[in-house]
Design a binder for these strands. Sequence first.
DNA 1: CTGTTAACCTGAGTGC
DNA 2: TGCACTCAGGTTAACA
Length: 273
Amino acid sequence: MPELPEVETIARELRSHILYQPITGVVTYTTHLRLPIPPNIKHALIKKSFINIKRRGKYLLLSISDGKTLLVHLGISGQIIILPLSHEKNKHEHIAITFANHKSLCFIDPRKFGTIILITGDPLQHTLLKNLGPEPLSKKFNSTFLRKHIYNRKITIKQLLMDGRFISGIGNIYANEALFLSKINPIKPAYTLTFKECDNLVNAIKATLKRAILKKGTTIKDFRNSFGENGQFQVELKVYGRENKTCLECKKSIIKKIRIAGRGSFYCPKCQQ
DNA sequence: CTGTTAACCTGAGTGC
DNA sequence: TGCACTCAGGTTAACA
């Protein structure tokens, strides 16, 4: 589900829903997601509040008023939805945090690949965050950076884009879309990209992510924003999920779907050579 | 070190 | 209807 634009959408909405709201209750229905949910999470949160909400890559960082951080990752199928205090429990609801304003933050995740942990100290130094590559929308991610990191890398450029240690926040949808926009074949070995292609790819990644944030994310199946609503970027997808359909750019070739490192990869054989 | 594969888990879709 | 199988917005341990 959630790549950078979807997580950014959630982060922005949560700020208006729950920032500074006193936490009045915590209920957990599950002991384990990808990692164990901290057994002391109720005690750690109750009577405190979230005083800052940030995003790093695909992670949400909720700063607790006592200095700790609640780190949340949505995995593939995770959702964070704000519901009324008294709502019917969703089948896959794993934790509900309730606030003095009678709102309830519900973490719903059918596949349980998400993560919720507590961090003491600097969250950016935590194991899960410290090795993340730069934010794709930051100045640090530029053509010079990309050129440096493709050196001698024999993996495909698509695999490199999806490696969080190289760059954070890009997943399967936006890797496919950015490569289409920059007219680069996803299977091209990273080291073979020209200077010009690096420029184009950096620009395409930034443009795609900004546009997707503006449209509040992509809903293929599971993604919902904190109001339970769909994103709107899926109607602008050029290649993802469009196998066997006509390319919207050249209007001649047929979008192909191949498998790269186990992930569905979509491209136009004519536009992306 | 680099690169590949399998595993975590549930649900939806397809073909027989 | 049922069963077997494949696939899905992510991450990472284990392996060659």
